[in-house]
């Protein structure tokens, strides 16, 4: 399946769960906010959110400084 992730087209295996994608890419859950099709995904739902073809996923990583 093809998704748009952070603005770029990406191919992922069918049925990929959000947690698996985030772990594989090395994202730290305590440093990110995830929007799926422009809606926030609550952290407690990362493990049960199944990505689908055509989804738009945005992973925002917060970095230190302010």
């Amino acid at each position: 399946m093809i998704l748009t992730i952070n603005g770029e087209k990406c191919q992922l295996a069918d049925g990929t769960v959000l947690t698996a994608y985030l772990e594989e890419r090395g994202y730290r859950p305590d440093l990110i906010a995830v929007e799926l099709n422009r809606n926030i995904v609550p952290k407690k739902l990362y493990g049960e959110t199944v990505l689908s073809d055509g989804d738009e996923l945005e992973v925002v990583t917060f970095m230190g400084g302010g």
């Binding site: 440093l31 990110i32 906010a33 917060f62 230190g64 302010g66």
Partner: peptide
Amino acid sequence: FDVPEAKAMLVNYCLEHYPEKYIVSASGMA
């Protein structure tokens, strides 16, 4: 905030609990 964990916590909290409010955040400015 300056600490990244605090930034992420506040943004997630606001988007989850206050969908009607706006959250304006900043990340990456060193």
